[in-house]
């Protein structure tokens, strides 16, 4: 349980039909670190994550878990090593929070190994970690969007995997809960050595919480490395087609992106930035 598993992709091509979405992508996910994938809408982040979680069969190339092609491994065995929080999961009506989070335990159960005390502890720990213990007996369909998101994260946590893939775990969350979730992931990473791979839209939070970042543009990696190497004016300009300036986060010291919209893009903005940089 302490970061023994490695995940990566080699010349991976993924798509849903004829046109590939992710093309000849190679990637090494640093073991026991937090990696975030950033990029514009529809650039293929979810597709890549689904590919890594062997939800899509590659058109070419391979996803490697511990050096072996993930499609050659039994699905249940993979599920004990790698958990996934999809971008838009659905819960059937009337399912209680404990039931849902409890399903995270299913890779550890089988015909002869049913619900046990270990499952109870894992579910309880996951609920506590996500601050959803007081929702335990509620049904998922009557929760708010943010509560629901945290319950789904709890399900992924209850799976107790060494590698955790999360697709936009902070959508629907207010700013405090966004930071809570990222703190939670950082904590998990530090205490258990869990390898975390998350798709995030907030570049500043991504830069603050990641050890490693991957920027995607149209299904290809345009930059990968520590946040300071990825979150640059040039890369953000390429990836999002947006002018910006990057300063130091006064709290964390990580890069902080200040967008320059069309309105602020004039000389006044440049002057303000220059003044800020001098101060």
């Amino acid at each position: 349980m302490s970061g023994h598993h490695t995940l990566g992709a080699r010349d991976l091509t993924l798509g849903y039909g004829a046109a590939p979405i992710v093309e000849e992508l190679s990637l090494t996910v640093p073991r026991g670190k937090v990696t975030t994938i950033v990029g514009a809408n529809a650039c293929g982040k979810s597709t890549l994550l689904r590919g890594l979680a062997r939800l899509l069969r590659p058109a070419a190339g391979q996803v490697l878990l511990d050096g072996r092609s993930i499609h050659d491994l039994p699905t249940r065995q993979v599920a004990r090593v790698m958990g996934l929080l999809p971008q838009s999961p659905v819960a059937p009506d009337g399912l209680t929070v404990v039931d849902l989070v409890g399903r995270g335990r299913s890779p550890h159960q089988g015909w002869f190994r049913q619900w046990s005390a270990a499952d109870e502890t894992a579910v309880a720990t996951a609920l506590e970690a996500t601050g959803t213990l007081d929702l335990a007996h509620r049904t998922v369909d009557e929760l708010s969007g943010g509560q629901r998101q945290r319950v789904w994260i709890a399900m992924a946590l209850a799976q107790e995997t060494d590698v955790l893939l999360l697709d936009e775990p902070t959508t629907f969350l207010d700013v405090a809960h966004q930071v809570d979730v990222l703190d939670l992931l950082a904590d998990l990473n530090q205490r258990r050595g869990t390898t975390v791979v998350a798709v995030l839209h907030d570049l500043n939070l991504a830069a603050r919480y990641s050890d490693h970042m991957v920027a995607l543009l149209a299904g290809r990696v345009v930059a990968a490395g520590p946040p300071r190497a990825v979150v640059t004016e040039a890369t953000v300009g390429d990836v999002f087609g947006m002018r910006c300036t990057v300063i130091d986060d006064p709290v964390a010291g990580t890069p902080l992106v200040i967008p320059l919209g069309r309105k602020q893009a004039g000389p006044a903005a440049s002057r303000a930035v220059a003044a800020g940089a001098r101060a």
């Binding site: 689904r50 979680a53 062997r54 939800l55 699905t75 249940r76 065995q77 993979v78 599920a79 004990r80 790698m82 958990g83 996934l84 929080l85 999809p86 971008q87 838009s88 999961p89 659905v90 819960a91 059937p92 399912l95 849902l100 399903r103 995270g104 299913s106 890779p107 399900m155 992924a156 799976q159 893939l165």
Partner: peptide, 21 residues
């Protein structure tokens, strides 16, 4: 039935839980 309980959560979540979807 076990797989069905997984699929109830959507194909992606089911696959993540080790169901051969």
């Amino acid at each position: 039935a076990h797989g069905l309980r997984g699929l109830e959560l959507g194909d992606d979540a089911a696959a993540g839980l080790g169901v051969p979807v």
